[in-house]
Computed example of a mutant assay.
Amino acid sequence: MTSQSWRVYGYSALITIYLCSVVFFSMNSSPHPNQKNGNVERFAEFANFRNTRFRGFTSRTNIRWCNGLKYLKTDVSSHMITTVPTPQSTIKVMPIDESKNNAEYQITGLTALASFPGSGNTWLRYLLQQATGILTGSVYKDYGLLKTGFPAENVRNNSVLLVKTHEFGPKAWEPFTKVILLVRDPEKAILAEFNRQSGGHIGFAAPDRYKRTKGKYWQQFVLKSLKMWEATNLSWARDFTGSIKVVFYEDLVGNLESTLRGILNFLEFPIDENLLSCTLLRREGVFRRKKRFLNFDPFTASLRAMIREKKLAVYKYLESLK
C-alpha cells in the first residue's frame, strides 16, 4: 500500500514538473506585444499587419531624406496637412536651398501611380519623395510602409504628389486626371510579388514554396499573375481617358536621371537640381529588394514561353504610346 502511494506521488510529481516546463517555455518563446526584439507574425501570406515590426523592415530603419517631407498646399481640411520633419540623424550631402518652398506649389487634379504589384512602385515613390520633398499617397494603408518612410499612406487627394494604386477599371480611374503607368518585365514582376507575399517588401520566399504541392501552387500563381499583369497595363493604357505617361522599370534602373526628369515634367513639378542630385546619390534607399539567385529555375519552358508572348504584345502597344 505504501509503495503504491509513493508511486502515485511520483507520477503526480512528474506530471506537475512536465506541465510547469511546458508553461515556462511557452511564455518565454512567445513574444510579448511590447517586446522590442519580438518577431510576431500572423499570416505568412500577408505583409501588412498591425505590429511594431514588419517583415522586410526593422524598427531601426532610418531613411536619410534629402529634405524634410511635406504635404502640398491644398484646400482639404487642415488636419490632413502636416509637416513630417527630417530625422535629426539625416546628413545632407549638399546644400539645399531652403528658400524654395515646394509645399506652396499646388497640383491641379490628381495623378495615379499605377502598376502591377512587384513593378517597383515603392522604389519610385521613394525616389520622387527624395526629388521633391513632397509626400506620396496611396489607395491602400500598408502599415509597414506607413512606419518606414510613407506617412501619407491612405491619403488620396491633391495634398500629395501622386497616389499609388494597383487597381484598374472605371471606379479606379474616376478620381484621377493623370496616370504614371509603371511597367516591369512580367517575369521579374511576378517573382517580386511572390517574394513580397512571402517575405515582405524586401524579403524573399523560401525556396520550398516554389515546390509546394509539387509546383502546382507556383504555376497557378504565375498564370493568375500574368493575366493580371496584362489586364492592369492594357486597361490603363487603352481605356483611361486622362493624360498618361508610361515608365518602364528598366529605364529607371538604366537611366534614372533622365527618367525622373521626364516624370517631374509630366507632373509639371518644378525641378530642384540640388534635390535631384541628392536623389541620384541616394538612389538605392531601403526599398529595393537585393538580388538572390536560386539554385533552380522556377519557370518551366512553357511558362517562360507564355510570359514572353504576353510581354511582347503588351510592350509593343505601350511603346506606341511613348
Score class of each variant (00 low, 15 high):
Asn102Cys: 06
Gly137Val: 09
Gln130Met: 00
Leu124Ala: 03
Gln130Gly: 02
Ser138Tyr: 03
Ser99Ile: 00
Thr108Met: 09
Leu146Arg: 14
Lys100Val: 10
Lys100Leu: 12
Glu98Asn: 13
Thr111Gln: 10
Ala131Glu: 03
Glu98Gln: 13
Gly118Tyr: 00
Asp142Ile: 07
Glu98Arg: 13
Pro117Phe: 02
Lys141Phe: 13
Asn101His: 12
Tyr140Val: 13
Lys100Met: 11
Leu135Lys: 11
Glu104Gln: 14
Gly109Asp: 06
Gly120Ile: 02
Ser119Phe: 01
Gln129Asp: 00
Asn102Gln: 09
Leu127Phe: 01
Ala131Thr: 01
Ser119His: 01
Ile107Arg: 15
Lys100Ser: 11
Asp142Val: 10
Leu135Glu: 11
Ala114Trp: 00
Ser115Leu: 03
Ala103Lys: 13
Ser138Thr: 10
Glu104Phe: 04
Gly144Trp: 01
Tyr126Ser: 06
Gly120Thr: 07
Leu146Val: 03
Tyr143Asp: 15
Val139Gln: 14
Tyr105Phe: 14
Ile107Lys: 15
Lys141Pro: 04
Thr122Ala: 01
Thr136Gly: 11
Ile134Ala: 08
Glu98Val: 11
Val139Asn: 13
Val139Arg: 15
Ser115Gly: 07
Thr111Leu: 07
Ile134Arg: 11
Thr111Lys: 09
Ala112Pro: 03
Thr111Glu: 11
Arg125Leu: 05
